[in-house]
């Protein structure tokens, strides 16, 4: 029976939410070719408690305290050792900062193709759908090779429920060569959710008029009670109002949250490309003809400086219950 390998992701010794999505995506791919799903987790010993009852046949746990931080070459060696040991049709990896770095390493080592940033599984033998041109078009790709690395976009699949995978703990292969060393991870001054991972994104654009007014966006995001991240249009990032890590669009991050709120963003093509797969889109803009209303489910036309405080207060009340 064919097998699929799901590569899970941890941070600080805890499994990340995206790991459940990877198990779900791997299951979906497996169902299309009548395969089973194995999982692999790489991290410090403390991760073990999170690995009970995963939705897979078995979970290989490569455990070492030297694997606390993402160490590119060591993680790649760990996955390579398991992946090359037995007949995997696909190695499924989250398209996160970690996975986008790890995926190509695995493809190189297994000498196989890589299908990046998959958002859906199509009918047919190992056939996958992925956005190209930052979502301006969807490409359907059929894997003809025996094995492929598949990275999966966060928020595109609903996380798998629980199962009863057995956990097999193994050591890092001693052939692992470390060429790049992750020395540390610097946390940002104000720890906030990343736009690519948040279930709600509140983005601001040039309509905010100046950098200081972004506090209105931060307040609305905060009103959702820790569920929302702040995003920004390219114009305000290029103007230096916001860090580029917040930029949503074709030359920034491509996001698919449950709710995307665009405030004072007219909706340039490159911005729409980055957020049009959001499940629900709300736009607040002064110009009723702004292109953003063309993709929004719900729009309010008017002065954001009047609307936002009222909206923030209402949302905060609902969040507080």
């Amino acid at each position: 029976m064919a097998k699929i390998l799901a590569v899970l992701e941890q941070r600080d010794g805890a499994l990340k939410k995206v790991s459940g999505e990877i198990l779900a995506a791997a299951r979906k791919i497996a169902d299309s070719i009548d395969a089973s799903v194995d999982a692999i987790a790489i991290g410090p010993a403390g991760l073990e408690s999170d690995l009970n009852g995963l939705a897979a046949d078995k979970c290989t746990f490569v455990s070492s305290d030297s694997l606390q931080l993402y160490q590119a070459d060591l993680y790649a060696s760990a996955v390579e050792a398991t992946a090359s040991s037995g007949g995997y049709r696909a190695i499924v990896i989250p398209a996160t900062a970690m996975g986008k770095d790890l995926g190509p390493r695995i493809a190189a080592r297994l000498k196989c193709p890589l299908v990046a940033d998959v958002t859906a599984v199509a009918d047919g033998e190992l056939t996958l759908v992925r956005p190209v041109y930052a979502g301006k078009a969807m490409s359907t790709v059929k894997v003809t090779a025996g094995t492929a690395v598949v990275t999966v976009r966060p928020n595109a699949f609903e996380a798998a429920g629980s199962g009863n995978a057995s956990v097999e703990k193994i050591e890092l292969p001693d052939t692992a060569v470390k060429r790049v060393t992750t020395a540390q991870v610097k946390a940002p001054e104000n720890k906030s959710l990343d736009v690519s991972e948040a279930s709600i994104v509140v983005s601001g654009g040039r309509g905010l008029k100046e950098a200081d007014n972004f506090k209105l966006i931060e307040e609305l995001a905060a009103a959702f009670g820790g569920e929302a991240a702040v995003g920004a249009s390219r114009a305000v990032v290029d103007a230096g109002w916001r860090p580029h890590s917040e930029q949503v669009g074709q030359t920034g991050k491509v996001v698919s949250p449950d709710l995307y709120v665009a405030v004072g963003i007219s909706g340039a093509i490159q911005h729409l490309a980055g957020m049009r797969t959001s499940k629900v889109i709300v736009a607040v803009n002064r110009d009723k003809d702004a292109p953003i209303f063309g993709v929004a489910d719900y729009g309010i036309v008017g002065d954001l400086f009047e609307i936002l405080p009222v909206l923030t207060e209402k949302i905060a009340k609902i969040t507080a219950g």
Partner: peptide
């Protein structure tokens, strides 16, 4: 840049 942080790598 990684989600919610900055990784520093040496090589």
């Amino acid at each position: 840049e990684i989600e919610g942080g900055v990784e520093v790598v040496d090589f």
